[in-house]
Amino acid sequence: MAREPAVLRIFVILVALAAGAILLLPPPASAQEEVASAIRRYKEKEASTGYYEEYEVRPRRQRPFVEIPGVQVGLFPYSPSAAEVRVRTRLADSHMGIAFYTDKTCVACHPQEAKDIHTVRANLTCRQCHGGEPIASIQYFNSPMNPIRKHAYVCAKCHEGSSASFASYIIHEPAPGSMAALKSFPLLYIVYWFMTVLLVGTLAFFIPHSFLTGVRELFTRKKEAKNDADTTH
């Protein structure tokens, strides 16, 4: 008698949990396009197709236990709805809450970012591309730097006809031989070290080779000159 309601109660709890679990699943997407590559997608008809990748649309409702790569708080992965960690790459004002922000120059905190061709050669200032305050995070949906509009909002200011593919040029490229490059731009790293090894290898071979040729010929000449005086032929 007494066991039946208990079994029923456990059953109800399990059903409720299962129903709750369904809520944890990501909502079905309205359109799931198979994208061969960014180039192909962006080639000509980027906007006219109406298809967008996930990072291009407004953030959907936050899901607990869905981690953001590299961010973990406590025992559980970072959960935007449960924690108060600021992920700087996703803020409307990326410099929000930084002490004495207004007294700082950009390069005070971003020295590596001032070593690119745009800054060094074309003498661009940071704000010419990144805009005035507040400077939005790179992954903030409404940022002008969002890949869906960067080519039009930023690059095309100077580069007429800039496409989204063109805008995937890495402005602040890492030092090509650094471990940072290996992580974020492996091909650049590989090309750099391939060319460096080729350069050093070629010179390391041919400079001693030429020098030894010179030294050896110096001795040969002297010997032959002596021989010529002795023998006539």
Partner: peptide
């Protein structure tokens, strides 16, 4: 660069610039 980025991703220009210089 515009024509190149129609056929290759724009970051290939990073590689091209490095290769050209090296």
């Amino acid at each position: 660069p515009m024509v190149t980025s129609r056929f290759l991703p724009g970051w290939s220009l990073n590689i091209a610039a490095l290769l050209h210089r090296a």
